[in-house]
Computed example of a mutant assay.
Amino acid sequence: MNHSLKEMVALVTGGTKGIGKAIADRLSNAGIQVIITARTAPAEVTEGQYFIQSDLAQPESAEIIAAEILEKYGRIDIIVNNAGANLSPGGGFSTLSDEHWNNDWQTNFMSVVRINKALLPVMIDQKSGVIVNISTGAAKLPVWEMTMSYSSAKAALNAYSKALANEVATHGVRVNVVSPGLVETPLMLEFIQNMAQSSSVTQEEAYQSVMEKLNVPLGRMAEPDEVAGIVAYLVSPEAKYITGVNYSVDGGALPTI
């Protein structure tokens, strides 16, 4: 991260907590003007950040966000599509309704497609821009009893990201993916709590069950800032020859290199 990033404008969706907040704060500290979105307004917005309240699962949200950013700042240099969640119950295919599938795909895939579609024309006109789509290790290593519909939506995001990277590279726009594994965020802790309640076990037992299923060699969950670090690198000039790549930040959980 260096002085060349200052005065750039970045959008970080889902930027009020967890991984998104860590990314937004890292970019703000580099001098970038950061716009964050979330369904719920934070108690306090960090200095140097601008908040837009929005539910990205709603199709009209992307155009509204894009219009506000362009009216206020007139440009967009970085998009970090971080907003996403594993919204469906565990238990496998028989527990998942059409509504569960639709919610996961709207939140984790179509929301990204719409944001990029709304803002990419500006990047193409500028002949510069960087997009980082936040996926998950579960897209390559799905856990059927916990992440079936979520994993499928994120797997689609991976394929879409590679195709988009190839399409817009000649316009000076780079697209990459970061795939975290287990990260200690409020959403993850809530997921473990719900898993404990539904399985009638303690939270510690549920935590250990998740760790054992994913077999993390480093033996712990990541901190959000450990994901933010690779995102900060990818949007910087140091990564100007990197596009169409998916980076795993999973403590070694993916069993292939």
Rank of each mutant, 00 (worst) to 15 (best):
61 S>N: 12
97 S>F: 06
77 D>K: 00
39 R>S: 06
47 E>Y: 09
64 I>V: 15
48 G>T: 09
44 E>M: 08
84 G>M: 11
35 I>Y: 03
19 I>N: 09
26 R>T: 10
103 N>T: 12
32 I>E: 02
23 I>K: 02
51 F>T: 10
85 A>T: 13
51 F>Q: 07
60 E>D: 14
76 I>F: 06
93 F>Q: 12
53 Q>L: 05
88 S>T: 12
71 E>G: 15
26 R>P: 01
33 Q>R: 14
91 G>L: 05
49 Q>K: 04
51 F>S: 01
42 P>S: 14
52 I>D: 01
94 S>I: 13
22 A>P: 01
37 T>E: 05
67 A>E: 12
97 S>E: 02
32 I>D: 04
61 S>A: 13
82 N>Q: 10
80 V>P: 01
48 G>Y: 10
94 S>L: 07
36 I>D: 00
91 G>C: 00
93 F>R: 12
67 A>C: 02
53 Q>R: 06
52 I>A: 00
75 R>L: 11
56 L>S: 06
68 E>G: 12
98 D>W: 05
58 Q>V: 14
73 Y>C: 14
67 A>R: 13
79 I>K: 07
53 Q>N: 10
65 I>F: 07
20 G>Y: 04
35 I>N: 01
85 A>Q: 12
66 A>L: 03
22 A>E: 03
46 T>H: 09
85 A>K: 11
95 T>G: 00
107 T>C: 03
64 I>M: 12
54 S>H: 09
98 D>Q: 05
43 A>R: 13
86 N>V: 04
28 S>D: 11
80 V>F: 04
104 D>H: 05
74 G>L: 08
37 T>H: 07
73 Y>M: 15
76 I>V: 09
30 A>I: 01
63 E>Q: 15
69 I>T: 06
96 L>K: 04
72 K>Q: 13
77 D>V: 13
86 N>S: 11
70 L>C: 05
63 E>M: 02
87 L>N: 06
60 E>W: 10
99 E>S: 08
81 N>C: 06
45 V>L: 13
45 V>Q: 05
57 A>R: 00
100 H>Y: 10
49 Q>F: 02
103 N>A: 15
19 I>W: 01
56 L>C: 13
41 A>S: 14
105 W>L: 14
99 E>H: 14
65 I>Y: 11
29 N>C: 07
102 N>T: 14
77 D>Q: 10
34 V>Y: 07
92 G>C: 11
33 Q>F: 03
63 E>G: 15
78 I>G: 04
22 A>M: 04
68 E>A: 15
69 I>V: 01
38 A>T: 08
33 Q>G: 05
96 L>P: 02
59 P>W: 06
69 I>C: 06
59 P>K: 04
89 P>A: 12
79 I>F: 00
104 D>M: 01
53 Q>F: 10
